[in-house]
C-alpha cells in the first residue's frame, strides 16, 4: 500500500495498510513456493512421454515424497539463513514453516 500513497477513503475505512501489505507478501511467497514445487516435482516425477492422462502409481508416490522433500530442503535452507542472520528482514515470512 505504501507504494501508492494512502488514499483518504482507505485510511478512513479503518484499513491498516502495513498489516495488509504483510499479508499480501505472505500470500505472494506461499504462491511462489507452490509454483516452484509444481514445476520441480513435475520435472522429477512425470515422464514426458504422456502415454496416458492418469498419474500412475509410481508417479503418485514420487510426487508425495518430492513435496515432502522440498519442504525439508526449504526448512534446512531457512535454518541456515537464520543462523547466518541473513534474514533479519524476512520477518513477514511467517507461514511457510520458516
Amino acid at each position: 500500500m505504501s507504494m501508492f500513497g494512502r488514499t483518504p477513503a482507505a485510511s478512513s475505512g479503518g484499513v491498516n495498510h502495513e498489516r495488509i501489505e504483510m499479508a499480501i507478501n505472505e500470500i505472494d511467497m506461499v504462491s511462489d513456493v507452490f509454483n516452484r514445487i509444481v514445476a520441480s516435482c513435475h520435472n522429477k516425477c512425470i515422464s514426458p512421454r504422456y502415454a496416458e492422462g492418469d498419474l500412475n502409481k509410481g508417479e503418485s508416490v514420487c510426487i508425495d515424497r518430492c513435496v515432502a522433500k522440498f519442504f525439508e530442503v526449504n526448512k534446512k535452507v531457512g535454518e541456515k539463513m537464520q543462523s547466518a542472520g541473513a534474514n533479519a528482514q524476512a520477518t513477514g515470512a511467517t507461514s511457510f514453516g520458516l
Partner: peptide, 16 residues
C-alpha cells in the same frame, strides 16, 4: 494426456 496429467499433478501437489 499432458494437460490431464499436469492438472492431476498440480492437484496432488496442492493436497500435500
Amino acid at each position: 494426456n499432458c494437460a490431464d496429467k499436469f492438472l492431476k499433478h498440480s492437484e496432488r501437489v496442492g493436497q500435500r
